[in-house]
Write a protein that binds this DNA or RNA. Structure first.
Lengths: 227, 227
DNA sequence: CCCGTGTTTTTGGTATACCAAATGCCAAAT
DNA sequence: ATTTGGCATTTGGTATACCAAAAACACGGG
C-alpha cells in the first residue's frame, strides 16, 4: 500500500440523479403561483429532449420528485408540478415544527457546546439595521439556522425526513420574511432558542422552537390570502 | 346511462406500483436479521423474471423503496435491502415520537369527541388477561392506536411523513411487545393519553405521547442487544 | 348549429436492446 | 505457488421501440 492519500473518484452522480437535481432546482427557482397552469405539466419527451437524455432517467427523477411531494402523477395523463394549497402549506409548517422541536430537544441534551455556539455565527454578519438592506441573505441565514438545529441533533433519520419538506419551507419563508417586520420578532426568537440550548433546557428549547414555527403558521394563515 | 352499478375499472394500479407493493410486503414479512447477507441483494433481472414483468417497473419500484429507506442502491452494484442498525432504529422511534406527539396536540385541539372516543374501541376486545393470550393481535391494535392518532390529526402531510417510517415502527413493536410485560405499562399509558385527549389538554397529551414513544426507545436501547 | 361517432395523434406505461463498469476466472510470467 | 494482466460474464444504467389509453380532431347525421 502506497502512502498516497487518494480521495475516491466521483462516480455516484448518475444521469438520473443529476436530472432529479436539475428539475428540483428548476421547480425551486420558479414562482409556481404566477405561471399559467399549462406550464405545470412536465412533458417527459420534452424534458428528455431539452436535457439531452432519454426518457428513462427522466421518469426515475419524476418518481423521486413525486415521493417528495413536488410533483404528482395523474395516471395516463402525466406529471404535474404540485401547487400546494394554503392548507397544505400550513400542514408542512406543523410537521416542520414537530421535527425541529424534537431536534432542539436532542441538541440541548447531546450537542457539544461548540456546536451550539456555531448557531450564533450564522447571524454574526447581521448587525441591527443591516437586516432590512439584505433581506434575501437574512432569509437564507434564517433557513440555515433552522436547518442547522436539525443537523446538530445528530439524527440522520430526522435530517432526511426534514429534508423531504425543507423545499416547501424554503418557499414559505422566502415569501413571508419581508412581511410586516416579522424579522424583528424572528431574530429575538432565535436568540432565545440559542440561550435555551446553551442552558441545556430541553423542555424550554423544544417549546420555543415549536412556538416559533407555529407562529409562522398563524402568520401565513392570517396574511397569505392567495390560494 | 344504464342502471348497472359498475365499480370503476382499476386502472390506477400500474404494474410499477403493484411491484412496489409486492416487494414492500415481502420485505415487511421477512425477518431481515435472520437471513444470510446474500439474500439481501435484489437482482433486477431475477425479480423481473419472478414477477413476470420487465425490469423497468422493477426499477421504478426500487427507486420508491429507496426513498422510503427500505432498500439502498450501491452504484454499479445493485439494490440491497436495508438492515437498520440499532442506532437507526432508535432514530426512527425518536422521529415517530416527534410526529405522533404533534398529532396528539392537534387531536386535542381539533378532533371531534366521537373521533377521540373511537380510540377506546381499538382496545375494546382486549379485557384484562386475554392480552397475553393474543399478543399478536394486541400488538397490531397497539400499532393501530398510534397510527390512528396521526390520522385523527387531520393532517395529510403528517400522515404521509409518518407512513414513510411506519414500516420500521411495525418491525420494532413486533419485536418488543412480548418483552418483560411491556404491554401492562403500555395499556396504562394509552388510557392516560386518551384521557388527556378527552380533556382537551394539548400540552399533556403531547407530553404523554412523546414520553411513551421515548420510553420505547430506551427499552430497545437497553434490551435489544443484537445489531 | 349541435351532438355523437370514428379516426388520428399524443402520451404515459412497459418491454427490450445496448453499453460500460465491476467482478471473477484463468493462464502466463516470475 | 503467487501474482498479474486480460478476457468473459454479470449487472446496473441508459436509450429506444412498442403498445394501449386518452385526448384532440374531423366528419357526418340530425
Amino acid at each position: 500500500m502506497s502512502a498516497l492519500e487518494l480521495g475516491a473518484i466521483r462516480s455516484d452522480t448518475s444521469i438520473s440523479v443529476r436530472v432529479y437535481e436539475t428539475i428540483r432546482n428548476a421547480i425551486t427557482a420558479t414562482n409556481l403561483y404566477e405561471i399559467d397552469h399549462a406550464e405545470l405539466r412536465l412533458d417527459e419527451r420534452e424534458l428528455a429532449g431539452r436535457l439531452g437524455v432519454s426518457r428513462t432517467p427522466i421518469r426515475e427523477a419524476l418518481v423521486r420528485l413525486e415521493h417528495e411531494g413536488l410533483v404528482t402523477s395523474v395516471p395516463r395523463r402525466g406529471y404535474f408540478i404540485c401547487r400546494k394549497t394554503k392548507g397544505e402549506l400550513l400542514e408542512v409548517i406543523v410537521v416542520w415544527a414537530a421535527l425541529e422541536s424534537m431536534a432542539a430537544r436532542l441538541v440541548a441534551l447531546n450537542a457539544p457546546a461548540t456546536a451550539i455556539a456555531s448557531l450564533r455565527e450564522i447571524f454574526a454578519t447581521f448587525e441591527g439595521d443591516s437586516i432590512v438592506a439584505h433581506l434575501d441573505e437574512y432569509s437564507e441565514a434564517n433557513l440555515r439556522f433552522h436547518q442547522r438545529i436539525i443537523e446538530l441533533s445528530g439524527s440522520e433519520t430526522l435530517r432526511k425526513t426534514a429534508d423531504g419538506i425543507l423545499i416547501h419551507m424554503r418557499s414559505i419563508r422566502h415569501r413571508t420574511i419581508g412581511e410586516d417586520h416579522r424579522f424583528e420578532r424572528s431574530i429575538v426568537d432565535h436568540m432565545h432558542i440559542i440561550e435555551a440550548l446553551e442552558q441545556r433546557d430541553a423542555e424550554l428549547a423544544e417549546r420555543l422552537v415549536r412556538d416559533h414555527a407555529l407562529a409562522l403558521a398563524r402568520h401565513v394563515d392570517a396574511v397569505d390570502t392567495d390560494l
